[in-house]
């Protein structure tokens, strides 16, 4: 549905997007994740025909963004980052204006406005001027505009910014629902958003793709790194540390004390789980054990790791991909 091949965008000396290639299948929500300035918005602007790439090509539904720009624009609904709207218009007028420019008939526009007003909760302020709306309301107007013509592809740039927690949850549900019938590219730097809504994630940093895969796949790459954490009471820190380090499969041990309890954090060797051994150790020694758990890696850990790595080494190959297991 969406296809990018070696996309590159330069702004003078600044390389905003550096040879990005990816492909998105029909249906589902694909998250584009990255720190600020990673090239997310630039990539999206190329896909929506707003800015041409310096080199490389992109197509949506088989239409090239340069040569068949109008066909692409007909098939895309786009919510830009700052949700630009015409402040003097009323919400209904605005949606009607946008529908006209999308060549929708009068009846289609009327039905579509009713439908999106319902889906994006515009009911209360559909006849109010846009300059009287709060940031969250404007955001919903922008979202309604992006989906009113039932586009094949919906591209959303930071759609939940400025919404209150309840609206954020509702918007994420809406995005998930939309993903059943449309292909959605969701650009964000909010990790839980990706974990909750996306079937696949592309992580950008410094203009390049540093990882891609489902949130689960990305987490799995780190799960080998999950730590085992225990809290024990009784002996001294040094004794705990040496005893724990002797367990088979332990790579490194950190201990710290607080309120008379010693916290042991064990980094096992890859694909090893040392919880049972640790439990046996505590019972054999007669220590009191009040907590024993495996600390799974989160997408956030993964994100911070790959982004930090990319920023540390601007040159060279992508740090990670889902096929390669070499992420040490």
């Amino acid at each position: 549905m969406i296809r990018a091949v070696n996309l590159t965008k330069r702004f003078g000396p600044l390389l905003a997007v550096d040879r990005i290639s990816f492909e998105v299948e029909r249906g589902g929500v694909v998250g584009v994740l990255g720190p600020n300035g990673a090239g997310k918005t630039t990539t999206i602007r190329i896909l929506t025909c707003f800015q041409p790439a310096t080199s490389g090509s992109a197509s949506i539904a088989g239409f090239d963004v340069i040569n068949d720009s109008m066909e692409v624009r007909r098939r895309v609904g786009y919510l830009p980052e700052s949700t630009p709207l015409y402040p003097e218009m009323r919400v209904r007028e605005y949606l009607d204006f946008r529908g006209r420019l999308r060549a929708m008939s009068h009846a289609d526009r009327r039905d579509a406005i009713r439908r999106v007003a319902d889906r994006c909760w515009l009911g209360d302020f559909i006849d109010r001027p846009i300059n009287q709306l709060s940031k969250g309301m404007k955001q919903r107007v922008g979202l309604a505009d992006a989906i009113m013509h039932s586009p094949e592809v919906v591209i959303l740039d930071e759609p939940t910014i400025g919404l209150d927690p309840r609206q954020i949850r509702e918007t994420r549900n809406l995005i998930r629902e939309l993903g059943e019938h449309h292909t959605i590219l969701l650009c964000t730097h909010i990790l839980p958003e990706v974990e909750q809504t996306c079937s696949r994630t592309i992580i950008l940093a410094a203009g390049r793709i540093v990882a891609s895969g489902s949130p689960q796949q990305l987490r799995d790459q780190l799960s080998a790194k999950a730590r085992v954490v225990a809290e024990v009471q009784g002996p001294e820190e040094g004794e705990v540390k040496t005893s724990a380090a002797q367990i088979d499969g332990v790579q490194s041990v950190e201990v710290s004390s607080s309120n008379g309890w010693i916290r042991v954090a064990i980094q096992p060797k890859p694909d090893r789980d040392v919880r049972e051994e640790l439990f046996r150790l505590t019972t054999a020694k007669g220590w009191t054990l009040r907590e024993l758990r495996r600390e799974g890696a989160t997408l956030e850990d993964f994100f911070i790791q790959v982004v930090a790595k990319q920023q540390g080494q601007q040159e060279g190959q992508p740090v990670l991909d889902t096929q390669g297991g070499d992420h040490a």
Binding site: R45, C49, F50, M70, R73, R74, Y78, P80, S82, P84
Partner: peptide
């Protein structure tokens, strides 16, 4: 910034 929403229409 409305130029962005405008010029991404057909």
């Amino acid at each position: 910034g409305t130029i962005e929403t405008l010029m991404t229409l057909p």
